[in-house]
Amino acid sequence: MRLTKYEHSCVLVEDGDARVLIDPGGFSHGFETLAGLTAVLVTHQHADHLDVERVRALLERNPEAVLYTDAGSAAVLAESGIAATGAQPGERLDVGTTVDVFGGHHAVIHPDVPVIPNVAYLVGGRFLHPGDSYTIPDVDVEILGMPTSAPWSKASEVVDYVRALTPHVAIPIHEALLAVPDVYFGLYDRLAPDETDLRIVTPGDTFEA
Rank of each mutant, 00 (worst) to 15 (best):
R2N: 14
R2Y: 12
L3Y: 06
H8P: 01
S9T: 15
S9W: 01
C10D: 02
C10Y: 10
L12T: 04
V13M: 10
E14W: 01
D15K: 13
R19F: 01
R19I: 03
R19A: 07
D23E: 07
P24K: 13
H29E: 11
H29S: 12
G30I: 10
F31S: 06
T33R: 14
T33F: 08
L34T: 04
L34Q: 08
G36S: 04
G36I: 09
L37T: 02
L37C: 03
V40D: 05
L41Q: 03
T43G: 04
T43V: 02
H44K: 06
Q45H: 12
H46T: 13
A47W: 07
A47V: 13
D48G: 05
H49F: 14
L50V: 09
L50T: 08
E53L: 11
E53I: 08
R54H: 11
V55L: 09
N62T: 04
N62R: 11
P63A: 11
A65P: 00
V66M: 10
L67A: 05
Y68E: 00
Y68H: 15
A71I: 14
G72F: 11
G72A: 10
G72E: 04
G81T: 08
G81C: 06
I82F: 03
I82A: 00
G86H: 09
Q88G: 00
Q88V: 15
P89Q: 10
G90C: 05
G90A: 07
G96C: 04
G96Y: 11
V99P: 00
V99K: 01
V101M: 06
V101C: 02
G103Q: 11
V108S: 04
V108P: 00
V108N: 00
I109T: 12
I109Q: 08
H110R: 10
P111M: 08
P114C: 05
V115F: 05
V119S: 03
V119P: 01
A120C: 03
Y121A: 02
L122Y: 07
L122P: 01
L122V: 10
G124Q: 02
D132N: 12
Y134Q: 11
D140S: 13
V141S: 09
I143V: 15
L144G: 05
P147G: 07
T148K: 03
A150K: 06
P151N: 05
W152E: 09
A155C: 00
E157T: 10
V162L: 07
V169A: 03
I171E: 03
P172G: 02
I173W: 01
H174I: 14
H174A: 14
E175L: 07
L178C: 10
A179W: 01
A179D: 14
D182M: 13
D182I: 14
D182F: 09
L191G: 00
E195D: 13
E195M: 05
T196G: 04
T196E: 06
T196V: 09
I200C: 03
I200E: 02
T202M: 11
P203R: 12
G204K: 12
T206G: 06
F207C: 03
F207W: 13
E208V: 15
E208Y: 05
